[in-house]
Amino acid sequence: MMVWVNLIAALCMAGAMALMLSRLFIGPTLYDRVLAANSFGTKTVLLLLIFSLMVGRSDGVDIALLYALINFIATIAILKFFRYRSLEIALAQMSLRRAIGGDDE
């Protein structure tokens, strides 16, 4: 019985991912797209968890754990790149410069 419940849950999750993907495509601003990508990643993690319990293989949980971490880092990296147009600046240095009174860019 639980297999069917998990199957329905996985299908619902796929539907939510499709909705999120459409926001990713039509999102008017960059930040809408980043938000949609991040939320899509969270749903991917949940789909992986549900799927790995459904088929009874625990390997999927490890992948989901890794995916959750990479998803977070990717979001931060995209935001950092579009703010400073470079990934080679240390974030601590930028916040220090801002605190001293320089501007962002």
């Binding site: 601003t29 930040y31 977070f72 579009f82």
Partner: peptide
């Protein structure tokens, strides 16, 4: 991570 990412996106958009 999810509230941190949300705050990061919001802060970037605001700035």
């Amino acid at each position: 991570t999810s509230p941190t990412a949300t705050h990061a996106v919001a802060n970037a958009a605001h700035r």
